[in-house]
Amino acid sequence: MLSNKLGKQLGHPTYSLSGWLASKFFKWHNQILEENAVKLSNIQPNDTVLELGHGPGIGLQEASKLLMGPRGKLLGVDYSQYMHQMASKRMEEQISRGKVVLYYSDLLAMPIEENTVDKVFHCNCYYFWPDLKAGAKAIHRVMKPGGIMVTTLRLESVKKVASKNMFSGESWRPEVYMEALESSGFTDVRMENKREKLVTFQAIFATSVK
Score class of each variant (00 low, 15 high):
Met166Asp: 00
Arg173Tyr: 03
Val158Asp: 00
Pro174Asp: 06
Lys160Phe: 12
Arg190Asn: 11
Val176Asp: 06
Ser163Arg: 13
Gly169Pro: 06
Met178Ile: 04
Val158Gln: 02
Val158Lys: 02
Ser157Arg: 10
Arg195Asn: 12
Val176Gln: 10
Met191Trp: 03
Ser184Pro: 09
Asn165Arg: 10
Asn165Met: 08
Glu175Phe: 11
Gly185Lys: 02
Val176Phe: 07
Ser168Val: 15
Lys164Val: 01
Pro174Gln: 09
Leu181Thr: 03
Asp188Gln: 15
Val158Glu: 00
Asn193Ala: 10
Val189Trp: 03
Val161Lys: 09
Met191Lys: 07
Glu182Gln: 05
Lys194Cys: 01
Lys194Trp: 00
Met191Tyr: 04
Glu179Ala: 11
Ser184Leu: 02
Met166Phe: 06
Arg195Thr: 08
Trp172Thr: 01
Ala162Gln: 04
Ser163Asn: 13
Ala180His: 04
Thr187Val: 13
Ser183Met: 10
Val176Cys: 09
Val161Arg: 02
Arg173Asp: 00
Leu181Ala: 05
Glu196Asp: 12
Lys164Ser: 05
Phe167Leu: 06
Arg195Lys: 15
Pro174Met: 09
Gly169Phe: 09
Ala162Arg: 03
Arg190Ser: 13
Val189Cys: 05
Ser183Cys: 09
Glu179Thr: 08
Glu170Val: 10
Thr187Ser: 14
Ala180Asn: 06
Val176Met: 09
Glu179His: 08
Ser168Asp: 11
Ser183Gly: 07
Ser168Tyr: 08
Glu170Tyr: 08
Lys160Gln: 15
Lys164Asn: 03
Met191Asp: 02
Ala162Phe: 05
Ala162Leu: 11
Arg195Ser: 14
